[in-house]
C-alpha cells in the first residue's frame, strides 16, 4: 500500500520492458547492412585489419552469445564502450541527455499552455464557430509531418525573421528557453491537437456535471468556477492522454533534434546508426524506452494525486 510501493511495482515493470527492447534493438541493428569496423578503418581497411577489429569488439561471435554478453554487461550497469569514440556509451548518453529532456518538458509545457485556453474556448461555446475552428485548425498540426512543421518554423522565424537561432541548445536557463523555443513549439504542435481534443471532451462532460450546477448555484464567479471546478476535474482524464502522447513524441524528438541541430540523444542516435556504433544505439534506445515508461508512470502518479477517488494500491 502507499505511494512508494506503487512506484516500486511500476519500476519493476520496467525490467521486462527493458529486456524486450534490448532484444528487438539488438537483433534489428545487426540486420542493417554495414560494418562499424569498415567505418572506423575507412579507406585503409584490409580484410585482415577488419577481422582483427571485429575480433576485438566480439563481433565475430554468434549473435546470441553477443547478446548474452551485452545483457551480462547491462546487468552490471555497463552499456559498453562506443566503438567510434572509445568512451563509455553511458557517458556519451548522459552528456546528451539534458537537451532532450529540455525539449520534451518544454514541448509539454507549451502544449498545455496552448491546449487549456483553446479547449476552454471550444467547450464553453459548443458547436459555435469558435468551437469548429478549435476543432479543425489543430488537426493541421496533426496532419503535417513534424519535420516539415519544423522546417517551416525554422525558415520563417529563424532564417527570415531571425527571432530565434536556427539551431543549437543555447547556454543558461534563458538561453535554453530562447534557443529551444522553435523545436519545442514544433513538438507541441504535434502534441496539442490530441490534448485539445481530450480536454475539450472532458470539459464538456464536466460542464454538464451536477457539481458544476451546485457551484453555480452558490454563486461561484466565472474564473474561479473554471479553475477550481471545471479545469481541476477536466484535466484528470486528459493527463493520461498527455502522458501517452509524450511517450510517442519521445521517439519523434530524434527527427526534431536533427532538424534543429540540438545536441541531444536523438541526434546521437542518428549519428550512431550511421556509424553502426552498436553499443550507443542500444544504449540510447534503452534510455528512450525507460523515458516512455517513466513518463507514463509520472502521468499515472499525477492522475492519482489529482483524483482523491484513486488510491495508489490498485
Amino acid at each position: 500500500m502507499g505511494r512508494m510501493s506503487f512506484v516500486g511495482r511500476r519500476l519493476l515493470q520496467l525490467v521486462p520492458v527493458a529486456v524486450g527492447v534490448t532484444i528487438v534493438v539488438f537483433f534489428m541493428i545487426h540486420l542493417i547492412p554495414g560494418d562499424p569496423a569498415l567505418t572506423i578503418l575507412g579507406i585503409h581497411a584490409t580484410p585482415q585489419s577488419i577481422h582483427e577489429l571485429r575480433q576485438e569488439w566480439g563481433l565475430n561471435r554468434p549473435l546470441i552469445s553477443q547478446y548474452w554478453f551485452f545483457l551480462d554487461r547491462l546487468a552490471h550497469g555497463n552499456l559498453g564502450k562506443s566503438l567510434i569514440y572509445g568512451t563509455p556509451a553511458a557517458t556519451l548518453i548522459m552528456q546528451r541527455l539534458p537537451p532532450t529532456l529540455w525539449l520534451i518538458v518544454y514541448a509539454a509545457v507549451i502544449a498545455i499552455l496552448i491546449s487549456v485556453p483553446l479547449a476552454m474556448i471550444a467547450a464553453t461555446k459548443k458547436d459555435g464557430i469558435r468551437d469548429q475552428l478549435v476543432r479543425a485548425v489543430p488537426l493541421l498540426g496533426l496532419g503535417m509531418p513534424t519535420f516539415w512543421v519544423g522546417f517551416l518554423l525554422l525558415t520563417l522565424f529563424g532564417v527570415t525573421l531571425r527571432w530565434f537561432p536556427v539551431g543549437g541548445y543555447g547556454t543558461g536557463f534563458f538561453g535554453h528557453l530562447h534557443a529551444m523555443f522553435l523545436p519545442a513549439l514544433t513538438v507541441a504542435i504535434a502534441l496539442a491537437p490530441v490534448v485539445i481534443r481530450s480536454l475539450r471532451a472532458s470539459m464538456l462532460s464536466v460542464l454538464g456535471a451536477d457539481y458544476i450546477t451546485t457551484a453555480r448555484s452558490k454563486g461561484v464567479p466565472g474564473m474561479r468556477l473554471f479553475v477550481r471546478h471545471v479545469l481541476r476535474n477536466a484535466v484528470i482524464p486528459a493527463i493520461t492522454v498527455l502522458g501517452i502522447n509524450i511517450g510517442f513524441l519521445i521517439g519523434g524528438t530524434v527527427i526534431i533534434e536533427n532538424v534543429f541541430s540540438i545536441p541531444g540523444i536523438g541526434e546521437l542516435m542518428i549519428n550512431s546508426i550511421f556509424q553502426r556504433d552498436f553499443p550507443v544505439v542500444q544504449g540510447v534506445t534503452l534510455v528512450f524506452a525507460i523515458m516512455v515508461v517513466l513518463v507514463n508512470l509520472l502521468a499515472d502518479m499525477t492522475y492519482a494525486s489529482l483524483d482523491p477517488r484513486v488510491s495508489f494500491d490498485r
Binding site: 456535471a209 451536477d210 457539481y211 450546477t213 451546485t214 457551484a215 477550481r228 471546478h229 481541476r232 476535474n233 484528470i236 489529482l306 483524483d307 482523491p308 477517488r309
Partner: peptide, 8 residues
C-alpha cells in the same frame, strides 16, 4: 452523489 465536486 453527483452534486458535490469529487476532487474538492
Amino acid at each position: 452523489m453527483s452534486a458535490l465536486n469529487p476532487v474538492m
